[in-house]
Simulated scan of single mutants.
Amino acid sequence: MKAAVVTSFTAPLEIQERAVPQPGAGQVLIRLETCGLCHTDIHAAHGDWPVKPQPPFVPGHEGIGIVEELGSGVTERTVGERVAIPWLGSACGECRFCIDGRETLCERQQNSGYSIDGAFAEYAVASARFVVPVPDGLSSLDAAPLSCAGVTTYKAIKVAHVQPTERVAVFGVGGLGHLAVQYARIVGGSVIAVDIEDEKLDLATELGAEHVVNAAKVDPVAAIQALGGADVAVVLAASPRVFEQAFSSLNRGGRLICVALPADQEMSVSIFETVLKGISIIGSIVGTRQDLAEVFALHAAGHTRIIAETRRLEQVNEAIAEVLSGKVLARLVFEY
């Protein structure tokens, strides 16, 4: 099979021919149809974060494909079923986080395309319990970005507890941001979209944002405060400066939802303002299997749109350069 492999944090990915993996106990073999390119895949390939994956490895955690073989003991899935391989590759199922519905906080979790090989390949093995069925009527092209960009922003809006008519500022309109705009609208939020590309801001308006702010042309804090301030700020741009701007844009009682993971990990906020204004700073990490099932159901019901362009796996390094340029409108998806 063909796979895109990280051999070094300082080298481009290599397209290699590998043997088709065999499913072990509790696993399924999946023939991939699509896989989205997430910024996390780029961080993984470059070794940007403190806990680093171990090369060689195959990135990819927005994989959609068909179950072709069942490992021993598998009863949850069937051959021919279409499933998603999300970021949460597995969790222990026994710790207090798994038991109370916060499986993405499990300390023994495995992550697709990071600690275990992912979906930048024609075939992959995955835990039968942690792949998520894809509903009929939902294309594999759309399902791929929903498996991370969708479930991540859906969960961010969930933990923000957005109330109808509250102003929600979405910092970074792209693969994640174009979905965050839609989820905030679904729960009744009034969306302010912030980016530095007019084309992305035009897309945000098309998807329901009531206001847009080009942070390359105006001070986003002043612009948002002129609109009445934000009750919720969701940060999807990988820059500490953007986190600080988002914090400063908040009203009293506001919630800063931290989603993006910059390589430079420190931001500066005022303790005085945090306390006196009653601001909450909340970290939100992807979503559970149930969250992803809900994301798929919303899309199948026609409540969201995916903006994506396709690429071939052989174009992986060019695709990464496109994403890093900031010019990609929303999501790039590899089709096999």
Score class of each variant (00 low, 15 high):
M1I: 08
S8N: 05
P12Y: 09
E17H: 11
E17K: 15
P21A: 07
P21N: 05
P23S: 04
V28I: 09
L32P: 08
T34W: 10
T40Q: 04
D41E: 13
D41R: 05
A44E: 07
A45I: 02
V51A: 11
P56D: 12
E62L: 13
G63N: 00
V67D: 03
L70W: 10
G71R: 01
G73I: 02
V74Q: 06
T75N: 13
V79I: 15
V79T: 14
G80R: 09
V83E: 05
A84P: 05
L88S: 10
L88I: 12
F97N: 14
G101V: 14
R102D: 09
L105V: 05
Q109H: 07
N111V: 11
S115M: 06
S115H: 07
A119G: 13
Y123K: 08
A124C: 12
V125S: 02
A126M: 12
A128K: 02
F130L: 02
V131P: 01
P135Q: 07
G137E: 01
L146P: 06
S147V: 10
C148V: 10
G150E: 02
V151Y: 06
Y154N: 13
A156S: 15
A160G: 10
T165F: 13
V170R: 05
F171T: 00
G172D: 01
G174S: 01
G177V: 01
G177Y: 06
Q182V: 00
I186R: 13
A193E: 10
A193Y: 15
D195L: 05
E197R: 15
D198G: 01
A204G: 04
T205K: 15
T205W: 10
H211A: 10
N214F: 09
A216H: 07
K217W: 04
K217A: 13
P220D: 06
D231P: 01
A233T: 02
V234K: 02
V235N: 01
L236G: 08
L236N: 06
S239C: 03
S239M: 10
R241C: 02
N251H: 08
R252W: 12
G254W: 12
R255H: 14
I257K: 10
A260K: 04
D264T: 15
E266I: 12
M267D: 05
M267G: 11
V269F: 12
E273G: 12
L276R: 05
L276V: 09
G278C: 14
S280G: 09
S280F: 06
T288Y: 11
D291E: 08
A293S: 10
E294F: 02
V295H: 02
V295C: 08
H303K: 15
T304M: 11
I307S: 14
T310S: 14
E314L: 06
A321W: 06
L324Y: 15
V328D: 04
L332A: 11
E335H: 15
E335N: 14
